[in-house]
Design a protein around this nucleic acid. Structure first.
Lengths: 233, 233
DNA sequence: CCTCGAAAGAGAATATTTTCACAAACAAGA
DNA sequence: TCTTGTTTGTGAAAATATTCTCTTTCGAGG
């Protein structure tokens, strides 16, 4: 019952009946990505076997996940791509959009602000803030960089529930406290810091370097034959 | 035995005896981050209780993980921070450096190329390439942007084993094939694509949007009281 | 309309991961 | 020196997640 997250992740409510397990929840973005790509190719159906081969997971596991999401397949053709895509989007709430503020107009903050591709998932960048007077007033794409002093007021005025943190580590907790005080409920944290937040607030730590660490481990053990690598996300 | 990865992840060889489980492997970067921060504060020891509270996981789990890594604690004080940090770095091979090439000098590629902080983990950016004639020859920090036509030769000449992919989706597979052909063994993929690679090559999919999805799910279910959220990485 | 093969679906069996419960060690203070 | 509280270490139990096995469905071809 008292389960504990390293990262915010999944199930908050049982989908309908049983719900989606944490492990399955993590696979959702991958399924979504694949069916999006297949849809772009004009495909209508995809089988659990295909999905399992692309993701390098067990075939039954895919079917279990679909069952948990209440996505039914057709016996001889597989799962309808449109249905699957839609079901995942519904489940994750990607249909209606979410406004987010990016805090920190450094390289990463700008890159995220300029990324075209969030929109299709319902993520709308509502603004970008920084504390550097040299940046304030400049533009990042269509967004004027605002002073971080306007953080609380902007959150309140726009009813922002999500912030994207790309500030230097030393400011991370401070910015978080202000944002949380102003009503933010979720933090997408690209800072290498474990933030302290009240329990009604969700933090997702991106910790980019973690990805490198897994590859480093692999590269440093190339010549160790013993075990065959495995994986997960 | 036949386990299957969504992401490249862990254990390739049993640490010494038993090894680190996949689940534990995923926690390593978090432990490392925390002890690094504590070290910066001048702390010498950290207890499993503190670690468990920061990461919001079970206390015993932390001790099990330490045991798997063969990190021994001191009865009344906890684990020695220096020892723990070093052990994790050794395990992951972060001591000796890894040269990487960034392919794609867009916003994200540049942000990664300019990020100071990889060095401390042994990740060295050896160059950045793009296919846009308008970018080739320009500089990103100290790196001159090279033509992607020089990908294979650069990999061979510098004996590059890792590439960082930040190209647009349509070019991802093509670039991958060239890099793999030239001897690359690991791909850090920031492209929303499931790459096809021979089995001796490891891919880590970053799929940034996945992080947003977990938060979207949380935000869209704020008013559903039933279950208390949980998490994972 | 029959047969065959390609899937999905579902229950049981495994495997993995997490948590519990408790023992042992040790530091600090009485 | 004794006692107490803190904290590691570990085997067993519980919870989760994955895989196996087998059944059912259905489409296509004959």
């Amino acid at each position: 019952m008292t389960d504990q997250p390293l990262e915010p992740e999944f199930p908050l409510k049982p989908a309908q009946k049983k719900g989606v397990s944490k492990a399955a929840f993590r696979r959702l973005p991958h399924y979504h990505q694949i069916v999006s790509a297949y849809e772009g190719l004009g495909r209508r159906y995809i089988s659990s076997k295909e999905l399992s081969q692309i993701l390098d997971i067990n075939e039954t596991l895919v079917r279990k996940d679909m069952a948990d999401l209440e996505i039914r397949g057709r016996q001889n053709q597989g799962y309808a791509i449109e249905v699957m895509k839609r079901a995942i989007e519904d489940y994750l709430g990607l249909q209606d959009s979410t406004d987010a503020l990016i805090i920190g107009a450094g390289h990463l903050g700008k890159a995220l602000a300029l990324y075209h591709g969030f929109e299709q998932y319902g993520l709308r960048i509502a603004g970008i803030l920084d504390n550097d007077p040299g940046k304030i007033g400049s533009y990042v794409g269509p967004h004027e960089v605002l002073s971080v002093f306007r953080l609380a007021s902007t959150i309140e005025r726009k009813k922002i529930k999500l912030i994207v943190l790309t500030v230097p580590r030393p400011s991370a907790q401070e910015v978080t406290d202000i944002a949380v005080g102003a009503g933010v409920r979720a933090i997408w944290n690209f800072t290498p810091t474990e933030l302290r937040v009240p329990e009604q607030v969700r933090v997702r730590n991106e910790q980019i370097i973690a990805g490198f660490m897994t590859l480093s481990y692999f590269l440093k053990n190339l010549n160790v034959p013993e075990e065959i690598p495995e994986a997960a996300e």
